[in-house]
């Protein structure tokens, strides 16, 4: 593991560069194929509405995959992620247009741990709503 961020250079409260991730219906179809999750709530509006959703929603695991990019882009080596967990609190609703939805992710160092590790807390929002809760990663720094 080769983190490009040094433990000594971060403090509790250090903010990671935030990022925004666009999601369209095409993104979800592609993710369905790559992940093998073909649940129709992620691509079939009629089905999604029938089961009580407002519209097609993004895969929770897609949102989870995007959110950790704020950490892996910061630390450089994705192998530096020691733990990563989230709670799926609200769905990311993806309308059938060119814009789709946006997932906005920010993160900051919440705790310095032993062994040059830090806990990073993430915040993921879409359309103003928090879509992930209890979203945190433990990262091995240099």
């Amino acid at each position: 593991m080769t983190a490009k961020i040094s433990y000594g250079d971060v403090e509790v409260g250090t903010e990671l560069p935030p990022q925004s991730f666009p999601v369209t219906r095409a993104t979800l179809v592609r993710y369905a194929g790559a992940s093998g999750d073909f649940n129709p709530i992620h691509w079939n509006e009629k089905f999604a509405v029938e089961v009580g959703l407002p519209d097609v929603i993004a895969h929770g695991m897609f949102t989870m995959a995007e959110a950790i990019r704020v950490v892996t882009d910061w630390v450089g080596d994705p192998g530096a992620i020691v733990e990563y967990g989230v709670r799926f609190t609200k769905p990311v609703i993806v309308p059938n247009d060119d814009q789709g939805a946006t997932i906005e992710v920010s993160a900051k160092v919440a705790e310095k741990l032993d062994g040059n590790r830090v806990r990073v807390d993430l915040l993921a929002r879409s359309a103003g709503l928090k879509v992930l809760g209890m979203s945190r990663a433990v990262v091995q720094l240099a």
Partner: peptide
């Protein structure tokens, strides 16, 4: 998978880049 989530980190696609990270 990396392309589906739009992640261009070379550690996912370039063996040399991954090796450089150990």
């Amino acid at each position: 998978f990396a392309e589906a989530v739009g992640d261009a980190n070379p550690a996912y696609t370039d063996a040399k880049a991954a090796e450089a990270l150990g």
